[in-house]
Design a binder for these strands. Structure first.
Length: 104
DNA sequence: AAACTGACTTCTC
DNA sequence: GGAGAAGCCAGTT
């Protein structure tokens, strides 16, 4: 669905996340031009249908905790994919200190 | 147009 | 650090 330009910006930002790194919803919202709209970002991700065009699995919570994921087995599958890309995990959360995406 | 919902974030206990 | 409550933003109904 077209929804709005905001969603398009969100998709663009998420698509810009390099492999082996993860970004938080707040970070994406800020880069998308709507700081604080972390929830809105998550909504777009859920609506997203192109997981390969928009790696929503590289999007995690502020603490690195894996949230949502409407594909595969959900969280478990998401976690597995990230680990495969080289993302460091702390139990059920991502180690943002090592795998946190830092936009240029 | 108003109200509700949601893959969030932050504060306080 | 974990549990509970309040606040924000955009989208959907």
């Amino acid at each position: 669905m077209k929804t709005s330009g905001f969603s398009s910006r969100v998709y663009a930002v998420v698509a810009a996340i390099p492999s082996g790194k993860v970004a938080t919803y707040g970070q994406i919202a800020k880069l998308a031009g709507a700081p604080g709209a972390a929830r809105a970002v998550g909504m777009c991700m859920r609506h997203n249908k192109d997981t390969k065009a928009v790696p929503c699995h590289r999007v995690v919570g502020s603490t690195g905790k894996l949230t949502g994921y409407a594909y595969g087995d959900g969280i478990p599958s998401k976690r597995k994919m990230l680990e495969r890309e080289g993302v460091k995990f702390k139990n059920e959360s991502v180690d943002l200190t090592l795998s946190g995406w830092v936009p240029a």
